[in-house]
Design a protein around this nucleic acid. Structure first.
Length: 192
DNA sequence: CATGGGATTGACT
DNA sequence: GTCAATCCCATGC
């Protein structure tokens, strides 16, 4: 099987399920961009019924992608210097996405280290903006399809999960919509 | 057209 | 624990 084949990727309809379920099922899956990546160990769910979600106020130019068909990358730019990777979830018409917060580095570690010079292994991808930097994911990948584009997600082993509150948001902070692989050292820091 | 906020990180006290 | 950096986009005049 070629390293970047689309045949073993998750099919687009895999993402057409409730976003909170998808967020848990993506833990343990493989995420790569142009062959560089690793195992997803931390995610958060966002839904248009949820105040903290960009889709909360209905489709706009930025968020309309979230209401489209599932299985696409939604790349969002924040704080003037950081890009965050999301996966569009739920059937077309529902605005929802899973934020990929951390991965365990596996493939192309040399490239990741080169892109993030001062990083140690545990810090390479332990945060949503670190991960996009290490994989070379930028805003021009916004809207790219996960089943054929440079970003790919493949099924992986099931893992023990922990759930907790989401991080870095000011609204709907009590929802337990953050998930991570239990005991992984590659998860982003603050754990409630 | 001007303004303000944000799903973060890294450096410093 | 606190704080600045810095840009896209939604909102409002």
């Amino acid at each position: 099987m070629p390293a970047n084949s689309s045949l073993d990727r998750l099919a687009a309809d895999f993402y057409a399920k409730p976003v909170v379920d998808l967020a848990q099922q993506l833990i343990g899956c493989g995420l790569t961009c142009d062959g560089v990546g690793g195992i997803i160990v931390e995610t958060e769910a966002y839904h248009d019924t949820d105040e903290a979600c960009h889709a909360y106020n209905g489709p706009t130019r930025r968020s309309s992608l979230l209401f489209g068909p599932p299985g696409f990358a939604y790349v969002y730019f924040s704080y003037g210097m950081h890009t965050l990777l999301n996966v569009v979830a739920e059937p077309e018409g529902t605005g929802a996405a899973v934020l990929i917060r951390a991965i365990e580095p596996v493939h192309g570690i040399d490239q990741m280290v080169a892109r993030r010079e001062r990083a140690k292994m545990e810090d390479l991808c332990s945060g949503p903006a670190k991960l996009t930097q290490a994989l070379g994911i930028s805003l021009d990948l916004n809207g790219s399809p996960l089943d054929t584009g440079p970003i790919s997600i493949r099924p992986g082993a099931e893992m023990r999960l922990r759930a907790g509150k989401r991080i870095g948001i000011s609204k709907a902070v009590d929802l337990k919509w953050r998930f991570c692989a239990d005991g992984s050292p590659y998860v982003s820091k603050p754990w409630i």
